[in-house]
Amino acid sequence: MTTVERTLISPWAMKKRRGKLLYWLVFALVITLFTVAFVVPLLWMVLGAMKTAPELARNPPTLLPESFGAGAYTEAWEFMDLAKYFTNTVIIAAGAWLIQLAVQVPAAYALSKLRPALGRWILALMLATLMLPASALLVPTYLAITEVPIVEVNLVNSPAAIWLPAAANAFNIYLLKRFFDQIPTELLDAARIDGAGSVTTMWRIVLPLSRPIIAVVSIFSIVAAWKDFIWPLLVLQDPEIQTLSVALQRFEPDTPINLMLAGLVLASIPMVVAFLIFQRQILAGLTAGSLKG
Score class of each variant (00 low, 15 high):
residue 4 V to Y: 11
residue 8 L to M: 13
residue 16 K to E: 10
residue 23 Y to P: 05
residue 27 F to K: 02
residue 30 V to P: 00
residue 31 I to F: 12
residue 45 M to G: 07
residue 45 M to H: 05
residue 47 L to P: 06
residue 50 M to P: 06
residue 50 M to L: 07
residue 51 K to I: 05
residue 57 A to K: 11
residue 63 L to Y: 05
residue 67 S to A: 14
residue 70 A to G: 14
residue 73 Y to R: 06
residue 82 L to W: 01
residue 86 F to K: 09
residue 89 T to K: 06
residue 89 T to G: 07
residue 91 I to C: 05
residue 95 G to E: 09
residue 97 W to C: 14
residue 99 I to L: 15
residue 116 P to M: 00
residue 118 L to K: 13
residue 127 L to F: 02
residue 129 T to E: 09
residue 133 P to G: 08
residue 142 Y to W: 11
residue 145 I to H: 01
residue 146 T to S: 14
residue 154 N to V: 09
residue 158 S to Q: 13
residue 161 A to L: 05
residue 161 A to H: 03
residue 161 A to R: 03
residue 163 W to F: 15
residue 163 W to Q: 06
residue 165 P to W: 12
residue 167 A to E: 08
residue 168 A to N: 11
residue 169 N to F: 01
residue 175 L to G: 05
residue 178 R to E: 14
residue 181 D to S: 07
residue 182 Q to M: 12
residue 183 I to Q: 02
residue 184 P to K: 09
residue 185 T to V: 12
residue 194 D to P: 04
residue 202 M to W: 00
residue 210 S to C: 11
residue 217 V to L: 03
residue 220 F to L: 15
residue 225 A to E: 04
residue 225 A to Y: 05
residue 228 D to G: 10
residue 230 I to T: 13
residue 237 Q to Y: 03
residue 238 D to Q: 11
residue 239 P to E: 06
residue 244 L to F: 09
residue 245 S to N: 13
residue 246 V to C: 08
residue 252 E to W: 05
residue 253 P to L: 01
residue 254 D to R: 14
residue 256 P to C: 07
residue 257 I to Q: 15
residue 259 L to K: 00
residue 262 A to V: 00
residue 266 L to D: 07
residue 269 I to L: 15
residue 269 I to A: 08
residue 270 P to F: 07
residue 273 V to E: 09
residue 279 Q to R: 13
residue 280 R to S: 12
residue 280 R to T: 12
residue 283 L to I: 15
residue 285 G to V: 02
residue 286 L to D: 04
residue 286 L to M: 14
residue 287 T to M: 12
residue 288 A to L: 10
residue 289 G to K: 07
residue 290 S to A: 15
residue 293 G to S: 14
